[in-house]
Simulated assay, not measured.
Amino acid sequence: MTTQDDTILLFRNTMRITDGHLDRFRDAITQAVDFTHEHGSQLMVQTFVDTEHMLAHSFQLYQDSDAVRAHWKLADPYIQEVMRHCAVVRFEVFGEPDADVADGVRAALGDQTSITFSPRVAGFLRLSAAPPA
């Protein structure tokens, strides 16, 4: 039996920020996240910046592969603007996307990026801070 949790996908994107582009990168990420918050299909987006190493880490949680495809169609201009200020160095997919999304990730990132796919074993999603009583 497939449950809702079985289709969840978590992406972790590690980007090297181009020297001299930190402020422009932050602006582009902020605009992209703001747009995604209003219109996107993600359940969660969080981006963190390690200024010492000029790396950014973006986490995106999707309900399923259809939500990933919807994001790609909607957010391309914002993704392009972010990519003007960084390069993806590692992309991790947690969960099992369908073949179309897996191929799309590989095609978009090419051979220059480390890409890994890790199937889900177990887990849960809690939307409140307090554990159940």
Rank of each mutant, 00 (worst) to 15 (best):
D5K: 03
Y62A: 07
Q4E: 14
D23M: 06
V101F: 07
K73W: 05
V88G: 02
T14G: 01
G95L: 03
I79V: 15
D5T: 04
A99Q: 12
D19R: 14
Q63G: 14
T116V: 11
S58W: 04
L61M: 14
I17M: 02
F59Q: 09
H71M: 10
F59R: 06
F48V: 10
D5W: 06
T47S: 14
D100M: 12
D64M: 09
T116N: 05
Y78V: 03
R12L: 14
Q42D: 06
D23N: 15
L74G: 03
R126E: 10
E96L: 09
E52G: 14
V68S: 08
I17R: 01
A87R: 15
L74W: 01
A122T: 12
R24C: 07
V101D: 06
I17Q: 02
A133R: 09
G110D: 13
P132V: 15
H71I: 00
F11T: 01
L74N: 06
T113A: 06
G104S: 13
H57W: 09
S65R: 11
F117T: 04
P132S: 09
D66Y: 02
I29E: 03
E92G: 02
V105C: 05
V89K: 07
I115G: 03
L9K: 06
S58V: 07
G110N: 12
H57D: 05
V88S: 03
Q80L: 14
H39C: 00
T30I: 00
A133H: 08
V88A: 07
T2E: 07
Q60V: 07
V101Q: 09
T7R: 13
Q4P: 03
E92T: 00
V89Y: 04
Q112K: 15
V82P: 02
Y62Q: 08
F91C: 04
H85F: 12
D19Q: 13
D100E: 15
P132Q: 09
R90A: 14
V121W: 11
V89D: 04
V101L: 09
D19Y: 09
H37S: 03
A133Q: 06
H53T: 10
Q112Y: 01
L9Y: 05
M83K: 08
G104P: 08
Q80C: 07
R69L: 15
H57M: 14
S65D: 06
T47D: 07
C86V: 11
S41Y: 03
V105A: 04
Q112G: 10
E52R: 09
F35D: 02
F94C: 05
G110C: 10
T116Q: 11
Q31Y: 04
T18R: 08
L55W: 01
R84S: 08
L109T: 01
A133F: 10
H85T: 12
V93I: 13
